[in-house]
Design a binder for these strands. Structure first.
Lengths: 232, 232
DNA sequence: TATTCAGTGTAACAGATTTTTGAAAAAGGT
DNA sequence: ACCTTTTTCAAAAATCTGTTACACTGAATA
């Protein structure tokens, strides 16, 4: 896959530099714009593959920039919003934002979301694995196949995607909101308890399948697919 | 990461110089303002990434400066308060201060707090380690994972954060109040004995894990994660 | 050395919070 | 219309957290 270009738009130069650094490490090339007008202008000439767009900016704010760009392009846009600022999901959807990130953010999260959005748009940098394999567990998200102890188990799509998502990043803790965003999608509005119910049904299917891994609750935080370490 | 800029506001020039020195050594660039009005003015032009703000100043005091800056910016603010002066946490919270430091302060503490606040705002100068490793002890705060003698131990979030905090700064003594501030959070009000109970529960989990380190009580002061030195 | 006392360890409780679970309603597909 | 999947809801269960009371310890004093 050719090198992908990301445009970072924020009036705070530190944020721009930081994001640029994160993205650079992951092999993206970056373009920086430090205000709304510059963003609109450079978008035409640079033709980035994705835009990270701050909402709070003087003059032309993020929403306005988003609206303008959407008039001529479907280029994926991730909005940046400061914690405390209330982010209007409805407005975001109407204007065609693809995702949003709350500041302060972490490198990992930014990268994960950029990748996720690009993937959804069929622009992922490298083909990602469509299957995961653990002791007594095989998941293939392409043909929606789940095998536990070698036995195929009929599993509804949502459960399938959830276990695939968790098992693809073993030991990483996901909050319910992250899962809703990343598995259900940005546009999903709903009770975060929904995740619990799916986890429960997955657990019924996975119960006692292996000592090597477990679908664990991290109390007060979320869930993770925990894999026993053999080392250290 | 681009160089971060800190604005130091204090009517005592010695304090300013001293802080400036500390910060400079750590790679921050600094701007000094010696009264409230100057702080407000220079904030606009300099756009610092963080402000160290003395409370007691003639004319415009720290609280007033804080209020004014908060009208237009979420720039992190750490208040400086002299020992003896009573520092009003509630007022601090309402006005949106992010932390506070009591004078006389130590270089180490100032740097630690500046870093902590910047980190919370997603502006940390370098990626901080999310895991610590000692003989028979592995802590990963990102995955909420605690392993003692290689065995994974389920641990509640508060205990997790506490041991992570202590183990991240081995041999440093923390008072109970410091731990409440730094682990429970600036906004937490509560009995400092709470810390004792958490320490006890941690000790149960860590008991006899290693000769190399220990969760030690410093009588009359607080606690520290003590690591035996092999060198020196 | 005995005494005193503030500081610390511990166990147990209560309240708060979070998670699990079952059941039923809603939505979607055939 | 039927069946499956998904979501919602709320009661029940589990877990975490802060507090308290009391026992114990270390350090200072007489």
């Amino acid at each position: 896959m050719a090198n992908l270009k990301v445009m970072v738009v924020d009036d705070d130069n530190n944020i721009c530099e930081l994001l640029s650094l994160y993205l650079g490490k992951e092999g993206y090339s970056t373009v920086i714009a430090s205000n709304g007008q510059e963003a609109v202008d450079r978008f035409e000439t640079e033709k980035p593959d994705l835009i990270l767009l701050d909402i709070m900016m003087p003059q032309l704010d993020g929403w306005q920039v988003c609206r303008r760009i959407r008039k001529t392009s479907q280029c994926p846009i991730i909005m940046l919003t400061a914690k405390g600022e209330l982010f209007d999901k409805v407005l975001g959807l109407e204007l065609g934002a693809d995702d949003y990130i709350v500041k302060p953010f972490e490198a990992k999260e930014v990268i994960a979301r950029v990748k996720a959005v690009l993937r959804r748009c069929g622009l992922s940098q490298q083909e990602e694995k469509k299957e995961v394999n653990y002791d007594n567990l095989y998941i293939n998200i392409e043909n929606y196949e789940l095998r536990v102890r070698g036995k195929q188990i009929d599993t509804p799509p949502k459960e399938m995607e959830l276990i695939y998502h968790l098992a693809s990043n073993p030991n990483r803790v996901y909050t319910r909101d992250q899962l809703l965003d990343e598995v259900w999608g940005f546009e999903y509005y709903g009770d975060s308890r929904t995740v619990d119910v799916h986890i429960k049904r997955l657990r019924e299917k996975l119960e006692g399948a292996s000592e090597q891994w477990v679908l664990k609750t991290v109390w007060g935080v979320g869930y993770k697919f925990e894999v026993k370490r053999t080392d250290v």
